[in-house]
Design a protein around this nucleic acid. Sequence first.
RNA 1: UCCUCGGUAGCUCAACCGGCAGAGCGGGUGGCUGUUAACCACUAGGUUCGAGGUUCGAGUCCUCGCCGAGGAG
Length: 385
Amino acid sequence: MFSYRTLAVCPVTGARAGEFVTPHGVIRTPLFMPVGTQATVKAMTPLELEQIGAQIVLGNTYHLYLRPGEELVADAGGLHAFMGWQRGILTDSGGFQVFSLADLRRITSDGVEFRSHIDGSAHFFSPEKSIAIQQKLGADVIMCFDDCVPYPADVSRVREGVERTVAWARRCRNFFLDFSQRGPGDERPLAGEGGALGLTSPQALFGIVQGGVHDALRLECASRLREIGFEGYAVGGLSVGESHDEMYGVLDALCPALPHDKPRYLMGVGHPANLIEGVARGVDMFDCVLPTRNGRNGTLLTSAGRINIKAKQYERDFSPPDPECDCYVCRNFTRAYIRHLYRAGEILAARFCSWHNLRYLIRLVEGARDAILAGDFPAYRARFW
RNA sequence: UCCUCGGUAGCUCAACCGGCAGAGCGGGUGGCUGUUAACCACUAGGUUCGAGGUUCGAGUCCUCGCCGAGGAG
């Protein structure tokens, strides 16, 4: 079902434009994906997400497993039906939560023991468990359960993360293929290793490359994941505190080593500049909480840089958040009004800021795609800077 | 007219027996990268109602006055 093809490649940079097919439509790349951890992009309705051009939204295995539970979502008809969103969905595996909830967990070779941040109850995730949950949730793209190593970390810890990530990726792949072969209620034994089995699942499984800021480890991880074989490849473990130059360095080394006929996904990124520079290095997909979280906290992303809408300087600023933006918020409301809403504690402020920020990032990457197709991405990139 | 209680940061209020005057909210500024986040951090605000007095030292005790609330007549 899942297939990717490249439509245009920038002759100067590594940027490329393409598309891939999912059960919920054709996805045009490069693209920015809003994060909807708990089966909702915070403060946004699916209708509004459609209107700003969102093609895929994220959900999170860890959160949805804890609440409301994957069984309930499956009974609701899957994540799409449950949240009323008919375009693409990608679920993250819970690997990042293992990293970000560090004080609540214990990692073993078999998986991760952790305690719920909601009620403290004990749980265990293995690669198989993560995939099983994601299959019940029913997203179009699901992710391998990986070991996201903190930054900075000793090389030994980064290497351990690569080994664990690769081993777990193989287990994810085997379980995924086996499940997709069997179908519901089929109790035939595991099908064994390798990607030789015919893929019948409507879902696509992406591998995740770890390796910190060490090029050699990144390349090794990518090579070993390619041997297993995935529908797409993600770059994980970035945007965890390293410098932008380190992030770009990893992408410079890694992207040429990823398959050219599969989508590439830079996880958790991010800042507008990161998106442009990621695209320039051949990344097709991005996600980040930044537009929604920062929006709720009163920061607006604009073509002239970030503005803090709380600041007094906008008290009597009757211009739109971003004069160059085409979104509903920028066409109808002023900085002064949004500042007022924010200070008054009105929920509409969070909605407006999230709304605009999402449109800004989606449009930024859409613009990059158009430029790549038109053959002038370098100029687009230069104009951004 | 008398009695009681009160007056401390912009607001609501803390401050032991007299011993460096604080908090929350509000104000100002900043941060946020696969969401434990409508969150977090930093910061500026004081003639402690006024005038005297006691004391080494007074927001705190004494006297007088001003303002507010309640009560008695």
